[in-house]
């Protein structure tokens, strides 16, 4: 028997009123295991935040159910659900001190003042802001506020922590630092994290599993490796990382059969026409349309003779690359045949 999932969504659907109604979430089924770091990844408007808000209880589903640890909570208001949320705008109470903000959840649940104080102190320590307790939210930086929002939620020891694009407002450096911290804290507390993001790199870095959302549906659920290496649809292939799409005549010429195929830029090698790229590699001729040097990598844009444009990415590592490859040069692109993935059209078109 499989253990009860921390979150189970069954045929969950949300329509917003309008003419015709807008289907934000289109009959989603999803199980999230206890202790998992699970990400919902998708472009804005794909329904991922609406799903999160239905789990928190801020939105009522049009149909379907939300179960938390086996209990149906679909009809319960937010304050009766054992989940806590880290909001995108942090939503710290501006009229309370940091200490009072963090204690809030405990005090409204009638935890004794001394105990609440102690646990809030621990939570502040966990996010390394112990000395900020007396301050007001307005006196903190964005990154600090973000960590207070995390502490305010974690102090309640919920079964599930919901994070709604929590790093969206931070600059890149801080973002990367917070990603590492977030992952460490999740490992430490062992709580299920449900993380909403539109940043594919963030999702790949943090998650045990990822659900890729598109137009209110889930296109694929899998580990970072699965989603990246074996995208189930062309949408996933295009949204998670970049992918060269090869279809039609080019597919017949390059792959040897009809269909829609994808290959990641870093799996392609560019060599001077006629020189060998290595054993067991397939290759196709083309013309170099652009060479872009970008520090750690060089990006080659190649127009295949078969009529498709592909991008190849080369690491600028110690094996120096052929610097003579110039725009307009006749080249071959080469690849391992197993890296060509058949990517069926997404069920939802754009």
């Amino acid at each position: 028997m499989t253990p009860t999932p921390a979150i189970r969504l069954s045929a969950l659907r949300k329509e917003f009123p309008g003419h015709p109604p807008v289907v934000a979430v289109d009959s989603i089924d999803l199980d999230i295991a206890a202790g998992e770091f699970f990400s919902m990844l998708g472009p804005s408007g794909s329904g991922k935040t609406t799903v999160l808000r239905m789990i928190a209880g801020f939105e009522e589903p049009t149909s379907g159910t939300v179960e938390l640890a086996g209990d149906d909570v679909t009809g319960l208001p937010p304050y009766r659900r054992d989940v806590n949320t880290v909001f995108q705008d942090y939503a710290l109470f501006p009229h309370m001190s940091i200490q009072d903000n963090v204690e809030y959840g405990l005090l409204v649940k009638k935890v004794a003042k001394a105990e609440a104080r102690r646990r809030a102190g621990q939570a502040l320590e966990q996010v390394r802001l112990s000395d900020m307790g007396k301050r007001r939210p307005a006196q903190l930086s964005g990154g600090q506020r973000q960590r207070i929002a995390l502490a305010r939620a974690l102090v309640n020891r919920p079964k599930v922590l919901l994070l709604d694009e929590p790093l969206g407002a931070l600059d890149l450096k801080l973002r990367e630092q917070m990603q590492v911290e977030l992952k460490a804290i999740q490992r430490e507390v062992g709580i299920t994290f449900l993380f909403v993001t539109h940043d594919q790199e963030e999702a790949l870095t943090l998650s045990d599993r990822i659900a890729v959302f598109n137009a209110g549906r889930i296109e694929q659920v899998g580990t970072a490796r699965e989603v990246y290496e074996q995208p189930a649809t062309d949408f996933v292939a295009g949204f998670v990382g970049t992918s060269n799409r090869i279809t039609g005549a080019a597919a017949r010429a390059v792959v040897g059969r009809d269909g829609s195929f994808g290959i990641r830029p870093e799996k392609l090698t560019v060599v001077r026409r006629g020189s060998s790229a290595g054993d067991g590699l397939a290759h196709a001729p083309g013309t170099l349309a652009e060479v872009v040097y970008a520090g750690p990598v060089t990006r080659y844009v190649v127009d295949l003779d078969a009529g498709s444009r592909v991008i190849a990415l080369h690491q600028n590592d110690h094996q120096s690359i052929d610097a003579d490859l110039q725009r307009g040069a006749d080249v071959d692109i080469a690849w391992h045949p197993e890296h060509v993935i058949a990517v069926p059209e997404s069920p939802v078109s754009h």
Partner: peptide
């Protein structure tokens, strides 16, 4: 509405 939602999320009844 996000402050009120945060409060509800932390377990406070509408009156609280």
């Amino acid at each position: 509405t996000s402050l009120e939602q945060a409060s509800a999320d932390l377990g406070a009844s509408p009156l609280t």
